[in-house]
């Protein structure tokens, strides 16, 4: 994600616009792009969602299978998340096992979902200590135009909300919806020069120095954060990002319903 060169002309243009509080695509600094969600689009998955955030597009699929619980949580189901930046999505992505960008992406999305308690893992127990439902979320970037963090967060949330535990397929009781409790939403800001903007596109992301992803729950409390990038942010800038994360998180929650 980080080894792509943006021309000086483009960089200057974006920065000059930002001085007037404007962006190339006409958005203001704290505007997010249009969100389109197609939930339940993959029949072979137990839950799925394809999400467009502007020109960025990702797909998340859920597979739920019986498995052995972890020794320290014998009566809880298991939730794992993976992300792949496949070559289809951008010329800078290469095939092969997930690199550090994909791993960070998956772990930041995972943290928001996990820490919010969105999936009630206690209800995924089949036989305590022996068998539980294991819920795998796999996310693929399809078209990359910046801000995969928020696109993947929305796709994961929407996929989990449509997910059904396939009890009948495995002879483990009736099919039932995956128990979900809330809607954790991440909001990502990046810093360009001394400006902070929300939901960066590819060019904006490439010239940014620092990134901050903040995940809130339904009550506007903080559930996960991740600062990334080689630059730094001040405490005042952090404070602004937190305010925006609460406000826009609420807005995104309304959009995805």
């Amino acid at each position: 994600m980080s080894e792509h060169v943006i021309s000086e002309i483009k960089r200057d243009h974006i920065m000059n616009l930002l001085k007037e509080g404007r962006r190339e695509d006409g958005r203001g600094v704290d505007d997010i792009r249009d969100i389109q969600v197609t939930a339940g689009c993959i029949e072979s998955a137990d839950g799925s969602a394809r999400v467009k955030l502007g020109r960025t597009e990702v797909i998340a699929g859920v597979k739920i299978i019986p498995g052995t619980p972890f020794a320290d949580t014998p009566d809880s189901g298991v939730l794992t998340m993976g992300a792949e930046l496949i070559p289809m999505a951008h010329s800078s992505f290469e095939s092969g096992p997930p690199g550090e960008d994909a791993i960070e992406l998956a772990r930041v999305v995972d943290r928001g979902i996990r820490e919010s308690g969105m999936v009630d893992v206690k209800q995924l127990c089949i036989t305590a200590g022996e068998e539980v439902w294991m819920c795998f979320v796999d996310i693929y970037a399809l078209d990359y135009d910046g801000n995969l963090f928020d696109a993947c967060n929305i796709a994961t949330v929407c996929a989990l909300r449509t997910a059904v535990i396939p009890g009948e397929q495995y002879g483990k009781g009736e099919n039932r919806p995956l128990p979900v409790t809330c809607t954790p939403i991440s909001v990502t800001s990046v810093k360009i020069g001394n400006d902070l903007i929300l939901d960066p596109n590819f060019d904006e992301e490439m010239i940014s120095s620092a990134r901050l992803t903040v995940t809130t729950d339904d009550d506007g409390n903080f559930r996960a954060m991740q600062k990334g990038g080689r630059g730094s942010i001040t405490r005042d800038e952090l404070s602004l990002c937190l305010d925006r994360a609460v406000e826009k998180g609420e807005a995104i929650r309304k959009i995805i319903g």
Binding site: R114, E115, S116, M225, T234, R235
Partner: peptide
């Protein structure tokens, strides 16, 4: 960075209100 008080690493997980954070 102590000389400027810039934040160069920040993560969070769990559940916190703004005041607690």
């Amino acid at each position: 960075v102590p000389s400027t008080d810039e934040i160069v690493l920040l993560q969070m997980d769990g559940n916190m209100t703004r005041k607690e954070f």
